[in-house]
């Protein structure tokens, strides 16, 4: 396969996720588009419930049986993710695209050692020996800044702090040197000091390994520092997408404008007004957003 750097590694056109519920269909994600090049960082921002996590789970094919995403295009390299067989998807997951989750405390299996869980992806995909996998696990634990890496392999998740567990999760996602990493708010559950460390680590590793990164976050400061592109989601739709500098300089949509105003600045009055969100169900499908934003009124 020729790696054409002009071709995006990930192409998404009109991704829609409908969730059937007892009271009607919930249009959780409503026709979003974006492209991601190799080595690029895309930050998806938006408030809770805006569909960020669902989008990332849809990319990984982890939405489960009840929820069927639809899209005109959802390609990872040349693989159409929505048409691919479960087997093809399994061969991609963990090997060429991997994910770091929001909850380090519960995302590791309590019954297996850190070493077992680290080596698992490599043993599933790589066809390598346990010894090689072990070496790789130690190497990556060191890379994510865990001291005494070798002795950590025989420890269990409950013996590690939240920050350490998230580092283990990152190491785990990197085991097979994936081309795409999706990190869903990887630092929300951690202390502020640890948050900065973990993010820096992630960005450094991304640059070192040349991976594409989708980072889902609330933190606009992080976005300004690391993102090449930003996608702002609101109520399941992409309200703004573009290069980071443009967004911060001149947001065209009222919602990101409101969002930027939410960054507290010393000496400035609090102008945090992002509007009242009236619930997904009340919104018309696709098309115009029924937002009640202060800027429009």
């Amino acid at each position: 396969m020729t790696d054409n750097t002009q071709n995006p590694i990930l192409r998404v056109k009109n991704l829609t996720i409908d969730i059937p519920t007892a009271t009607g269909t919930l249009h959780a994600v409503r026709g979003i588009d974006f492209d991601l090049m190799r080595g690029e960082t895309l930050c998806i921002v938006g408030e809770s419930g805006s569909g960020k996590s669902l989008t990332s789970l849809a990319l990984m094919g982890l939405l489960g049986r009840a929820i069927r995403p639809q899209a005109d295009v959802m390609d990872f390299e040349r693989t159409a993710l929505l048409e691919a067989s479960p087997k093809t998807l399994r061969s991609l997951r963990g090997a060429r695209m991997s994910m770091i989750f929001q909850e380090p405390m519960t995302s590791l299996n309590p019954s297996y050692t850190i070493g077992d869980q680290l080596m698992e992806a490599l043993l599933i995909h790589g066809g390598t020996s346990r010894k090689t996998a072990r070496g790789r696990a130690i190497e990556l634990l060191q890379k994510v800044g865990i001291t005494a890496a070798e002795s950590r392999l025989s420890q269990f998740p409950h013996q590690l702090s939240g920050g350490l567990r998230q580092r283990v999760m990152i190491a785990m996602a990197l085991m097979c040197e994936p081309e795409l990493i999706i990190a869903d708010e990887p630092t929300t559950a951690l202390d502020v000091t640890i948050q900065a460390q973990i993010l820096r680590l992630l960005v450094d590793l991304q640059a070192e390994m040349g991976m594409a990164l989708i980072l889902i976050t609330h933190d606009l400061g992080v976005v300004a520092r690391i993102a090449d592109k930003v996608a702002v989601m609101y109520a399941g739709a992409l309200v703004e997408t573009g290069p980071t500098a443009d967004l911060f300089a001149a947001p065209s949509h009222p919602y990101p404008r409101g969002l930027l105003n939410c960054i507290p600045l010393p000496g400035k009055p609090d102008r945090c007004e992002t509007g009242h969100y009236c619930g997904h169900r009340a919104l018309p499908r696709g098309g115009g957003l029924g937002l009640h934003l202060p800027h429009q009124m």
Partner: peptide, 17 residues
Amino acid sequence: SSDYIRTARAKGASEGR
């Protein structure tokens, strides 16, 4: 429905595993 099952699936583990 726990998070670590999602993690296992994200690694590409088969349904049986």
